[in-house]
Design a protein around this nucleic acid. Structure first.
Lengths: 243, 243
DNA sequence: AATCGATTGTGAGAGAGTGTAAGAAGTGCA
DNA sequence: TGCACTTCTTACACTCTCTCACAATCGATT
């Protein structure tokens, strides 16, 4: 559900499937050296409509990628964490805005240089293709979550996605730090801040999570949370969908 | 909102912006010759979980790209029309299913051959990158529509997207043929079939559209439909967002 | 032309999420 | 430590969409 949607590759590795272009992880190493850029909290990395001159890789901090409807409603498309690329997939100009949620360090890569490098490095184009494809899969995951699911399912899926992200990084799967505000979560899941808050409380009352501070979630019952995310479906199928 | 999301390039052309990789339209011509494949109505081109062996370009007919939640709820991700590519962005296996909505003719391109060609044709990788990027933009558009918008706004945005698609193809912007069923529209917009039906009726009663047959929509008041899509926002901003 | 099945349209009641508003908890600053 | 400000939580009335039920329409087949 978040930026790096690995579920397709994970499931694929259990079977014998056709060759695949290089992983996104390889993208950084194959890029020409990038300059560091530091952005303060609540400062934009770029805005919707800006010329897409650079692509960035988050090194520290986190960035909200969002778009706004003309009437002000905001949809957060992704929370980019360290290791995630932002600005990929922009054509001539950025279609979304990128706002640092905290002080954030990024490596920046000029798009022009990328195109130049792609002329010599024949695999770079495919690497970029793969990277955007992963973001496309993540966007579809989010679409599934937001379109048909109830508030509880959305929040549960969100927490599970963060839990699995932690797992991939070797951090605790049960202790989740939420660096984003309730408003951010609401705008990500297509809910209101009140509903997000109510649902957190509901999960706490039901014993699914602990919530001592509002930014620290402790998952008490991972399986039950999986059930909540998928309206009573076995957790194995859940895992395939959650992120 | 549908497969070919051109709004970013359209708005970009009005400014002086950095160079861009080749358009998707160029993709077909730069690919090695593809075999034709014909698929009957209600037959799958591929299913979720199938090895991603081929990429297809729709030549005639139309294809629904969809994913299903474990409990059976279905989300249509895209309606692919002639000229649209499907199967792009799949990593090792398809993350979505592709179902022909009518008898459909496709050109098929083996993924292995694509990777092979990319070794020689240095721009092919970037072309693929651009093509998936357009699909990513379309997915974000759909996400915006489905997450925060009301039933009327969703349906209005949907009709406007089809209208603009017609316009790009040199067809009538006001006479829209809906080859998909009400169920398909509902599953695309994250609504129920009843709500779709009621909203169509509401638009007809309000004089926004004519609806003599259920597959033929005639837009009577394009501007009002634009307002309905964006909850009372000037149509110029609408145009930027609608597709 | 008549019949059957599938699709579409309409209505009433129930449920879920929203919006407003007020209070509680947390954060930053002097 | 105390104050001001922001963020989060909770309560209640309201709106919108969904669910369920049934009627109407369309198309294909006989």
């Amino acid at each position: 559900m978040l930026a790096t949607s690995h579920h397709t590759t994970e499931t694929a590795q259990r079977r014998n499937l056709p060759a695949l272009p290089p992983r996104t992880d390889d993208l950084t190493s194959s890029l020409p050296e990038g300059k560091s850029r530091v952005v303060s909290a609540k400062e934009h990395v770029y805005r919707e409509g800006d010329p897409a001159t650079h692509v960035y890789c988050v090194e520290a901090g986190h960035v909200c990628i969002y778009r706004v409807l003309p009437d002000g409603r905001r949809q957060i498309i992704n929370f980019a964490y360290p290791g995630d690329f932002i600005g990929l997939g922009a054509l001539r100009e950025h279609a979304a805005s990128a706002l640092a949620g905290a002080k954030t360090r990024l490596k920046s890569f000029p798009v022009a240089g990328l195109h130049e490098s792609a002329r010599h490095d024949t695999t770079l184009g495919l690497r970029l293709y793969t990277a955007v494809s992963e973001q496309l899969a993540a966007a579809h995951d989010l679409l599934m979550t937001v379109s048909h699911r109830s508030a509880s399912e959305r929040l549960a899926a969100f927490l599970l996605a963060l839990s699995r992200r932690n797992g991939r990084r070797g951090e605790s799967e049960c202790e989740i730090v939420l660096p984003m505000t309730r408003t951010d979560i609401a705008d990500f899941l297509g809910l209101t801040i009140e509903t997000v808050s109510r649902t957190f409380t509901k999960f706490r009352v039901e014993g699914l999570i602990d919530l001592e501070q509002c930014i620290l979630v402790t998952i008490r019952d991972l399986e039950a949370l999986g059930m909540a995310a998928g309206s009573g479906v076995p957790s194995e199928q859940q895992l395939k969908l959650a992120s």
